[in-house]
Nucleic acid binder design. Structure first.
Length: 287
DNA sequence: CTCAGCTCCTGCGGGC
DNA sequence: TGCCCGCAGGAGCTGA
């Protein structure tokens, strides 16, 4: 499941095939995702021209010239796959044309130049909706979101104030999209390790100076992950089918039992479960 | 209001 | 090989 870096990677992959182009046809092959599509979504997309692609947290925002924005969430397993129809996709098998339809292809957008964008989501936790662009921030999925972690309003004083008085483990607090928008299980673990903060520590019980270390830790890990094209564990693919490679840089996530990579640290990575989800951290250098 | 737990889905890999 | 179990990158809802 994609977190902010994976979603940003997908957005960048979609930009060249969508921006400035019209959608000639929108096929809804399976509308009953966990959050069903608006029943008239296909009609509202057909003929619309894409003005620009944006992102808010883990949501891709497709601004249309109809005055509406298509909001796309990839859930846990969502992928957007682009094919131009002009190049070979599977060497030797499909010299021309689009790749064959796959299970869980829920939406296919046909662009005016022949390109196709396929939304595939096995677990169907993803979502799409349409909402007026001029008040996009009022959509119920976006209204409660906290600041962008890479934006200017996410800084040390903000995070200190936001964590103050919270009794939940700091890991749970950072997964709360109202505190900061875009982190998920992987990057929270990685950021906490970089900051030397234990995921079990109560959010309101971290010395301000150490909360301050969390801000650059979060910014840096997300920035590096975006530069690497995101992380590919199972489902994430770039829109061109290529893999992200940030997973090779994980310092704790998925590394249970492995030695800690922090300079001078002799600890090992431990896995625990917090609110039903795996947490990876080093008990020696994360306090 | 805060917070822990459950739930929605499907697929995959490991153990037996 | 087949079956069962646990686990997976999200997040909304319920109820204590």
């Amino acid at each position: 499941m994609p977190e902010l870096p994976e979603v940003e990677t997908v957005r960048r992959g979609l930009m060249p095939v969508m921006e400035g182009r019209a959608i000639t046809q929108a096929e809804l092959r399976r509308p009953d995702l966990r959050r069903p599509f608006p029943p008239d979504m296909a009609e509202r997309l057909t003929g619309a021209r894409v003005v620009r692609l944006g992102r808010r947290s883990k949501y891709i925002l497709v601004d249309l010239d109809t005055g509406e924005t298509l909001i796309v969430h990839l859930g846990m397993s969502g992928r957007m796959v682009v094919s131009t129809g002009a190049a070979a996709h599977v060497p030797g098998a499909f010299a021309l044309g689009h790749p064959p339809e796959e299970k869980h292809d829920h939406v296919i957008l046909h662009m005016e130049d022949g390109a196709r964008i396929v939304f595939n989501d096995a677990r169907r936790f993803g979502a799409m909706d349409l909402w007026p662009t001029e008040r996009i921030e009022t959509h119920w999925l976006l209204a409660e979101l906290g600041p962008e972690p890479l934006g200017n309003s996410f800084d040390e004083p903000y995070l200190i104030a936001r964590l103050r008085g919270r009794h939940m483990p700091v890991k749970a607090a950072l997964l709360d999209q109202r505190v900061v928008a875009g982190l998920g299980n992987i990057y929270v673990c990685e950021a906490l390790h970089r900051a030397g903060v234990s995921p079990r520590r109560k959010a309101g019980r971290i010395a301000p100076a150490r909360v301050g270390r969390l801000v650059p830790a979060i910014r840096n890990v997300l920035g590096e992950a975006i530069a690497a094209g995101g992380s590919t564990l199972r489902d994430h693919r770039r829109t061109d089918g290529e893999l992200g490679y940030f997973q090779h840089t994980f310092r704790v996530y998925g590394r249970e039992g492995a030695p800690c990579t922090a300079p001078g640290c002799t600890g090992r990575v431990r896995r625990i479960v917090q609110s039903g989800r795996s947490t990876f951290y080093c008990t020696a250098c994360q306090r």
